[in-house]
């Protein structure tokens, strides 16, 4: 069972690595921002699996923290980049 959990973690990590390509390619800032959402969700999944695998239930608190703050970046981006006339692509 432990080997299986490690495999799942590795798979999810490789998923993150794949998603990094989108940060690189862009083309807009919004596209790059999306990958932070991917990292947030995948990171949470990894943390949940690790919590079960290591038996360290406090790791769930890390996942909670991730989760409540993931949306903050998006809200900040949308609110801060809005007012400028060319802000979105400049």
């Amino acid at each position: 069972m432990n080997g299986f959990f490690i495999g799942v973690c590795l798979f999810l990590l490789l998923n993150i690595c794949l998603g990094l390509l989108r940060v690189w390619r862009g083309p807009t800032v919004a596209d790059r921002l999306l990958t932070t959402q991917l990292f947030g969700t995948t990171g949470m999944a990894i943390l949940i699996v690790l919590a079960g695998y290591l038996g360290e239930l406090t790791l769930l608190n890390v996942a909670i923290t991730f989760n409540v703050l993931a949306v903050l970046l998006v809200i900040c981006f949308v609110q801060v980049w809005k007012p400028g006339k060319k802000g979105g692509k400049a």
Partner: peptide
């Protein structure tokens, strides 16, 4: 709360773009 957060994020980013 992830469901909530990411549907919000989806809406906001789409509206932004």
């Amino acid at each position: 709360s992830t469901l909530l957060a990411s549907s919000t994020a989806c809406y906001l980013v789409a509206k932004f773009q």
